[in-house]
Amino acid sequence: MDVDQESDAPKWKPLGTTERRVLGVLIEKAKTTPDNYPITLASLTAGCNQKSNRAPQMQLNDDDVDLSLDRLRSVGVAVEVQGSGRVPKYRHTAYDWFDVKGPEIAVLTELLLRGEQTAGELRTRASRMEPFQDLAALQPVLQMLLDKNLIVALTPPGRGQLFTHNLYPDADLAHLRKKLTGDSSSPPPQPVAVASQPATPAPAAAAVAPANDELQSMRDEIARLSEEVAQLKQRLDILES
């Protein structure tokens, strides 16, 4: 019985702030720039510090990232790829570690890179790694992650409901809950609620939410294009060197 319980136990564990950023970048680069993956320590550090698709902004150095890689390797979610006479590179093993597939890993990665987000934000941002046609397509993915306890709902169901990953240490998650709701208790995961319109919205309220969503989508698109330009420049520099 003990053996069965151990085999059913999840492999994933809470991670520190820098470790979560490093893991998020490893997964992101595998999805968005597969031709340049696995990646070197220098590229990984640059990815951790990039301005687009990151919150909060960080200024890590190679030593910070290397220490985090040691921790990630010790828990089994990152490995070093040795090349003959070449600079070591690194890749993740997150699919097995989390026991998830492509759509779930895309949502988790966005949460690791940006922190708490609404379903609408996740659909827009995660679509650069996996296509989500609409919120209805995202809903079963969120529910699966909730069922696996990999994400938690921070606020009640409804428009603007916030989700985050569950890789925070307990104290950090309690602090985040308190900051958002004033309550540090940990209620069970809420059912996923795709945003619905109130029965009789006031005209002003009905106009503000779509406008905010459109503005956020434009900002995300600009950030995505900026990242693509940076990646193209990096490839050009490699070709010219």
Rank of each mutant, 00 (worst) to 15 (best):
V77S: 07
H92T: 00
E110I: 14
G83L: 11
R71W: 00
L108F: 11
V87A: 08
V77T: 10
R86C: 07
V79D: 06
L111H: 14
Y95A: 06
L108I: 15
L72W: 11
V75L: 00
E104N: 14
A106V: 06
D99G: 13
R71T: 07
P103G: 05
G85L: 02
V77H: 05
V81I: 09
S74A: 05
V79R: 07
A94L: 04
V75N: 01
Y90K: 07
I105N: 08
T93W: 00
S74E: 03
D99H: 13
V107C: 15
R73I: 10
H92E: 06
V75Q: 00
A106W: 14
T109E: 14
S84D: 03
E80H: 15
V107A: 12
R71C: 00
A106Y: 09
S84V: 05
V79F: 04
V87L: 10
H92A: 03
W97T: 12
E110W: 10
V100A: 11
V87P: 10
V81S: 07
V81N: 11
G85H: 00
V87S: 07
V77F: 02
E104K: 08
D99I: 14
G83W: 08
W97V: 15
W97Q: 12
Y90P: 06
R86S: 07
R73P: 00
K89V: 13
G85E: 02
V100Y: 08
D96V: 08
E80F: 11
G102N: 12
R86F: 09
R86E: 08
E110M: 14
V79W: 01
G83K: 09
L111D: 15
T93L: 04
E80N: 10
G76T: 07
V107H: 14
V75I: 12
R71Y: 02
D96A: 07
V81K: 10
V107F: 12
V77Y: 01
L108C: 14
Q82A: 13
R73V: 09
V75C: 03
